[in-house]
Computed example of a mutant assay.
Amino acid sequence: MATVSLDRVSKVYPNGHVGVAEASFDIADGELLVLVGPSGCGKTTLLRMIAGLESISSGTLSIGGRVVNEVSPKDRDIAMVFQNYALYPHMTVAENLAFGLRLRGKPKAEIDERIRQAAKQLELEHRLDALPAALSGGQRQRVALGRALVREPKVFLLDEPLSNLDAKLRLSMRVEIARLHRQLGATMIYVTHDQVEAMTLGQRIVVLNGGEIQQIDTPMRLYEKPANLFVAGFLGSPAMNLLRGPLRHGDGWHLETPQGEVQLGTLEMQAPDLLGWIDRDVVLGIRPEDLRPTSEANATLSAALEVTEPVGNEIFLNLRRGEQTLVSRVPPGALPDAGSVMHFKLASDRLHMFDPASGARIA
Rank of each mutant, 00 (worst) to 15 (best):
residue 47 L to V: 08
residue 44 T to S: 03
residue 138 G to I: 10
residue 134 A to W: 00
residue 31 E to A: 04
residue 49 M to F: 05
residue 119 A to Q: 07
residue 40 G to N: 05
residue 92 T to R: 14
residue 96 N to M: 07
residue 150 V to D: 00
residue 56 I to D: 04
residue 114 R to T: 02
residue 148 A to N: 03
residue 136 S to T: 15
residue 42 G to V: 03
residue 101 L to H: 03
residue 58 S to P: 08
residue 136 S to V: 13
residue 90 H to I: 00
residue 90 H to S: 02
residue 116 R to V: 12
residue 99 F to V: 11
residue 131 L to M: 13
residue 37 G to R: 04
residue 112 D to T: 10
residue 89 P to H: 10
residue 94 A to M: 09
residue 111 I to A: 07
residue 113 E to T: 11
residue 75 D to C: 03
residue 65 G to L: 08
residue 82 F to D: 04
residue 59 G to I: 09
residue 102 R to I: 15
residue 130 A to E: 04
residue 92 T to E: 14
residue 126 H to R: 15
residue 141 Q to P: 02
residue 93 V to Y: 05
residue 139 Q to V: 13
residue 59 G to C: 04
residue 145 L to E: 05
residue 82 F to K: 11
residue 71 V to T: 15
residue 96 N to H: 10
residue 112 D to S: 12
residue 97 L to F: 10
residue 81 V to I: 00
residue 151 R to A: 14
residue 90 H to P: 00
residue 143 V to Q: 01
residue 41 C to D: 08
residue 135 L to W: 10
residue 32 L to V: 07
residue 43 K to W: 04
residue 76 R to N: 12
residue 86 A to Q: 11
residue 44 T to Y: 01
residue 119 A to T: 08
residue 70 E to T: 08
residue 131 L to G: 09
residue 71 V to P: 14
residue 88 Y to W: 13
residue 105 G to R: 06
residue 144 A to F: 01
residue 36 V to A: 06
residue 51 A to R: 05
residue 128 L to P: 14
residue 92 T to Y: 15
residue 44 T to L: 00
residue 56 I to Y: 02
residue 43 K to A: 04
residue 111 I to E: 08
residue 53 L to N: 02
residue 139 Q to H: 13
residue 127 R to Q: 05
residue 144 A to R: 04
residue 30 G to D: 15
residue 96 N to A: 06
residue 113 E to G: 10
residue 108 K to V: 13
residue 41 C to A: 10
residue 64 G to Q: 12
residue 102 R to S: 15
residue 110 E to T: 15
residue 109 A to C: 13
residue 123 E to M: 05
residue 148 A to H: 01
residue 46 L to I: 06
residue 33 L to W: 03
residue 87 L to R: 03
residue 148 A to L: 01
residue 86 A to E: 12
residue 97 L to V: 11
residue 70 E to K: 03
residue 39 S to L: 00
residue 88 Y to T: 12
residue 83 Q to Y: 05
residue 149 L to N: 11
residue 91 M to P: 06
residue 112 D to F: 07
residue 147 R to K: 00
residue 66 R to F: 09
residue 77 D to H: 12
residue 107 P to A: 10
residue 78 I to T: 13
residue 76 R to T: 07
residue 93 V to N: 11
residue 47 L to G: 07
residue 136 S to P: 13
residue 32 L to E: 08
residue 146 G to M: 07
residue 133 A to K: 04
residue 152 E to I: 12
residue 71 V to D: 15
residue 48 R to C: 02
residue 29 D to P: 14
residue 80 M to A: 09
